[in-house]
Design a protein around this nucleic acid. Structure first.
Length: 592
RNA sequence: GGUCCUAUAGUUCAAGGGAUAGAACAAAAGUUUCCUAAACUUUAGAUCCAGGUUCGAGUCCUGGUGGGACUACCA
């Protein structure tokens, strides 16, 4: 039962009965009552004053009085300025708790019948994943999960950028210097091995440029004519022509990278329903461009290149086909979007891509609109901010890139050190301990990243990220372990949590109120595409429990009825924490 | 030049147009014969500036200022 609806309905009836006016739902504003006032839910009187033609206080008194007789669950009220604070009965909250308890999938929304595609991760295959990818992957996975919980049918996809000059750079350097080195022979994870040669390429490239400059060639010319770069460019041409040797090398090295990525994905707990490869999609989109030309929304310049003029929209002209007829990034994206909307009936297509591509997606949508497709508005760019380090932006050239695998390993190690220091795991097997450290390290990392509103630039301070106190993943995990510990002991005493007629104290009502809005939070977070809302909700709930834990004793409570009821309450806290954190991809331990 | 994002305690983050702007970290002071102190309690501390809309603005609008991204025949 939703208390807001009860109040809205009641106030509507009150206005109708007192002032003979029918009001729309949106005129009646409700909010949770602030803690410093008595009451559970508050109706704001200001919007109704024009109807009542009375003071806020008087209007509140009149409506409040009506509500008392309207529903027996409305127990009392008080009016402060224009705010009508309403208290609901203990019975009301007990039945709310009962409803929460009887639904193991509490918060899960009924099927919407809508299909949503979420594209995320989308890495290049020339180097390993870094901190920026971590934010992308965690966000993407968790938004997909969030939409599932909102009742949508979700398809998670990854578009791997497996072709292009950057891949050829790694390949050239490997050919020249690796002497046949493989992940097996080097002991390196595949993506790291390939990344090593990408870095090596750039070193060699720089060296050659310096040599050329020393010979008197100017910098710009040197950058263009360095032999190793030429080699990479030639390799790309060979690749496009299907040269067997190059294609085989490309397949082998990409294979190494995929193996490496799979390990990282697996460890992070992210997955995809379908993987697209750019090598198979990069030629798409040309047909759409021809259509656009026919319809006159695109135009051809003298050199043969095709453009779209977006100056009316306040933007620039955008290139769609090069003078030689080959396609660019935008062409391809038009094509893949078209392909996906043809293949699936998508009600929404979410692209989880960094905010440096805001312009690109703005243009993509406009182009689709101009092409006259009816689904252009179903495209949503989930634009997230960059992750910065205390010393500023990550720069691969300056070696300040935070590697994803290293970071995860660090977090898990820190979890291990902290746990061992606290020494609460005495009788746990080595295996159980290791899986706990993994759970805690990843929980800390995931929570740290997801709790921030996606669109904001965030700061990643390694020192702060390994702090497991306060508003952190381990704090919530710890809270859960505490709850389970009590329930475990209750189980040993054969105590069966259940609803009794024992009255609730005010803290318990607070907690039930909080549990009760979980479905609302899921809807809100889904609408906003923001898992951060769920993260903050879970934190609030955990904090409430910890306060409750200090205020009352559960197992030592003398009243049997109260004891069983408290067990039921905390059992549901544990459930909602698991469900909520599950949306973020964070699992909670039984003990820690 | 243009487009977009962003600005809240010393720091990192919250706040569906509503009451006295919440937390955490850092700082200061407390709480373990008691269900896990990775916890809890207390103190101190903030809405970039100027206008506007509104009964009411951190939130919406306009204009500044600071920060960021993009504006490639790269992807």
């Amino acid at each position: 039962m939703n208390p807001e609806l009860l109040i809205i309905e009641g106030v509507k009836k009150a206005v109708e009965s007192l002032y003979s006016v029918n009001v729309e739902d949106k005129m009646i504003q409700t909010q949770a009552t602030r803690k410093e006032f008595a009451g559970d839910i508050t109706a704001v009187m200001f919007p109704l004053l024009k109807i009542s033609k009375k003071s806020p206080e008087q209007t509140g008194e009149e409506i409040g009085a009506f509500l008392l007789s309207y529903n027996r669950n409305i127990e009392s009220f008080n009016v402060v300025k224009g705010f009508l604070n309403i208290s609901l009965s203990s019975d009301f909250w007990l039945s709310a708790l009962d409803a929460i308890n009887s639904d193991p999938q509490f918060g899960q929304q009924p099927s919407s019948g809508q299909t949503v595609m979420v594209e995320y991760s989308s890495p290049n295959t020339n180097k390993p994943l870094h901190l920026g990818h971590i934010r992308n992957n965690l966000l993407g996975w968790s938004v997909a999960k969030l939409l599932e919980v909102n009742g949508h049918n979700v398809i998670k996809v990854n578009l791997v950028n497996d072709r292009g000059i950057h891949i050829c750079k790694s390949m050239v350097a490997w050919q020249k210097c690796a002497d046949g080195q493989t992940p097996e022979s080097s002991g390196l994870k595949g993506d790291h091995l390939v990344g090593k040669y990408y870095v090596l390429f750039n070193d060699l490239y720089k060296q050659e440029i310096e040599e050329l400059i020393a010979k008197g060639i100017n910098k710009e010319e040197a950058e263009k004519s360095a032999p190793i770069l030429k080699e990479a460019q030639q390799m790309l041409v060979k690749w496009e022509n299907g040269d067997k040797e190059v294609v085989d090398l490309w397949k082998m090295m990409n294979g190494w990278v995929y193996e490496g990525f799979d390990k990282t994905y697996h460890r992070m707990g992210v997955s995809f329903d379908k993987i697209y490869y750019e090598s198979q999609t990069y030629l798409l989109g040309k047909a759409l461009v021809s259509q656009g030309l026919e319809r006159g929304v695109f135009f051809r310049k003298d050199d043969g290149s095709v453009w779209c003029d977006l100056e009316d929209e306040g933007l620039d002209q955008k290139l769609l086909l090069r003078a030689d007829g080959t396609s660019v990034y935008m062409t391809q994206d038009l094509g893949t979007a078209h392909q996906r909307f043809s293949e699936f009936k998508l009600d929404e297509h979410i692209y989880v891509v960094g905010n440096e591509q805001n312009y690109h997606f703005q243009v993509l949508k406009l182009l689709l609109k101009k092409l006259g497709v009816d689904w252009y508005n179903n495209i949503y760019h989930l634009s997230y901010g960059m992750v910065e380090l205390p010393e500023g932006k990550m720069k691969s050239r300056e070696g300040t890139v935070v590697d994803a695998d290293d970071l995860i390993e660090n977090m898990v190690n820190t979890a291990k050190e902290t746990s061992l220091e606290l020494g609460k795991l005495g009788d746990m097997s080595q295996e159980e301990q290791n899986s706990l450290f993994e759970m805690l390290g990843l929980g800390a990392l995931k929570y740290f990243i997801i709790k921030v509103d996606p669109k904001k630039t965030m700061l990643f301070d390694p020192k702060e990220s390994i702090d497991f106190n306060g508003n952190t993943g381990p704090f919530i995990q710890y809270t859960h372990a505490r709850v389970r510990s009590i329930l475990r002991k209750a189980g040993e005493e054969k105590l069966d949590p259940k609803l009794t007629s024992a009255p609730l104290n005010s803290k318990e009502i607070e907690i039930i109120k909080l549990l009760n809005i979980f479905p609302e939070k899921i809807k809100e977070a889904g609408k906003e595409h923001s898992p951060a809302i769920i993260a903050n909700y879970c934190y609030d709930l955990a904090r409430e429990f910890n306060q409750y834990y200090h205020e009352v004793s559960i197992l030592k409570e003398s009243s049997h009825e109260i004891k069983l009821q408290r067990l039921l309450l905390i059992d549901n806290i544990s459930k909602v924490l698991c469900l909520g954190m599950g949306i973020l991809g964070i699992t909670l331990p039984q003990r820690m």
